[in-house]
Amino acid sequence: MTEVAQKKVASALAPLQLSGEHHLCPGCGHPVAWRILLEAISELGLEQRAIGVVGHGCYTNIVQLADIDFLQCLHGRAPAVATGVKRVHPDAAVFTLQGDGDVASEGLAEVLHTAARAERITTIMLNNGVFGDTGGQMTAASVVGQRTKTSLDGRDAETHGHPVPVAELVAALAGSAYVARGSVNNAGSIAKSKRYLKRALELSAAGAGFTFVEILTMCPTGWFLPTAEGPGYLEGTFEQTYPLGVLKDGPR
């Protein structure tokens, strides 16, 4: 075959990714979220201003794969740590990367107080409704009906109560300037989530206030599902409890 004239339109890794090697499960949505986050930082030209504070979860691995100043902190405490970082470097683009266990369970006080204080940072919450890296237990964000290792017959409101809608709570606080919820279960939603990330990072770096992006991600292992059924389960189950879209853009 003669040499075909072609142009690369997409490379596997984002510019800030040092490696694509990771040990997250097949079909996990987190690595997709990692990449659009790092692409957003590059495309906003924030590489040499970005400081990330990362909680505990399957996503923690990003601190090894990304060429960004990262601090891996205690479970749930990222928004408080990021506050200290931001107050010392007001011109840095400070963000936290956490999971639903890190935010909705362990660190709910931290994220709400930080939002109320209008700290000029961005919190990104990857929400798959389970504690992934401890094997799939229920979190405060697990949806009603969701089977987990600690709700094998499905979360039921009577005994396990209801999921905490963190994005809605953050949006209700005057200190938050932008709140959006996306997902990574198909190419279209991935592109939209990346736009939400860029907007959120841009606004906090510009000092508009606290910004928050929740990204629903697949966890087939934690959902006891074949990998190919992850995207559909996310849409059919999670998106009913967590509607996608921009919840807040500007003062309210």
Binding site: L46, E47, Q48, Q64, D69, F70, L71, Q72, A92
Partner: peptide
């Protein structure tokens, strides 16, 4: 941490 070494191959952790 100050963010300035992002993208240089020598970012901090």
């Amino acid at each position: 941490l100050d963010g300035r070494r992002g993208g240089t191959g020598a970012s901090r952790q």
